[in-house]
């Protein structure tokens, strides 16, 4: 390789010299200098291209993928509670931790994802005592002085990194899943996810997510929970229901 060929090479490919270029550089001090200058320029090129990357970019990409994957699966007409729990295990686990950073609508999304992990919950027709309910709420550092109505199922569940009370209420229109997550700030919103109705609202010190095949009982349940937490909370939140 001669000097001209070497300069031509480093002008386009300064970072990965082949053997011929490397031996020319060893033998030719002027070309070695030129290569050193080229590498300094590559350094400024690297710095210039290194624009800031959004915080939590990887988490947002994964959330996007998991959410899209879930709605695609639901869109195939499966009934949520009949879906095999298998695929959702990875889905739920992937989100532990990083969803704590995501906006509050994620709590609703994660609650939907969480449902399929406990497919038996919605079929439960038990009668949970108020003591058991209050014991779970005590673990969430939340007072629930009054009963929100008959509860068929309750479990302490961690959803997207949040401690929650996962409940099921059997109502005339069917099973309604109720998930209470203290410390989650939610703007009230309703959603319809492939036939599954949902609503999220702010109650007491957290967020309440309601999920069911239809939303006819949502208003009543929201009011019941507001009253169960505290009458002053009812007043503040009733407008948002």
């Amino acid at each position: 390789m001669n000097c001209l060929e070497f300069r031509r090479t480093i002008a386009a490919l300064p970072r990965a010299l082949d053997n011929a270029a490397r031996s020319h550089r060893e033998a030719c001090p002027r070309c070695a200098e030129a290569h050193a200058r080229a590498l300094v320029f590559e350094g400024s090129l690297d710095r210039a291209l290194a624009v800031p990357v959004p915080a939590q970019l990887a988490d947002q990409i994964l959330l996007h993928q998991i959410t899209a994957e879930r709605s695609q699966r639901l869109g195939r007409g499966h009934q949520l509670w009949r879906m095999a729990a298998g695929f959702t295990i990875g889905m739920g686990m992937a989100t532990v931790g990083w969803l704590a950073l995501a906006p509050s609508e994620s709590m609703a999304a994660m609650s939907v994802a969480h449902l399929v992990e406990e497919p038996m919950a919605m079929a439960s027709h038990g009668a949970v005592s108020m003591d058991e309910v209050q014991a779970i709420f005590a673990r969430l550092n939340t007072r629930l002085p009054r009963s929100p109505g008959p509860i068929a199922y309750i479990r302490f569940c961690v959803i997207g990194g949040h401690n929650t009370a996962h409940m099921v209420m059997q109502r005339p229109s069917g099973a309604v899943t109720v998930i209470f997550a203290p410390g989650v700030v939610a703007a009230a919103h309703s959603f319809n996810d492939a036939g599954l109705r949902g609503r999220e609202l702010a109650v007491a010190n957290g967020s309440l997510v309601l999920l069911s095949a239809n939303d006819t009982e949502f208003d009543a349940i929201a009011v019941a929970f507001n009253q169960a937490f505290d009458t002053t909370v009812l007043h503040r939140n009733s407008a948002a229901i």
Partner: peptide
């Protein structure tokens, strides 16, 4: 300098 060298070709 590299540019000048290359331009000669």
């Amino acid at each position: 300098e590299e540019a000048k060298v290359y331009e000669l070709s």
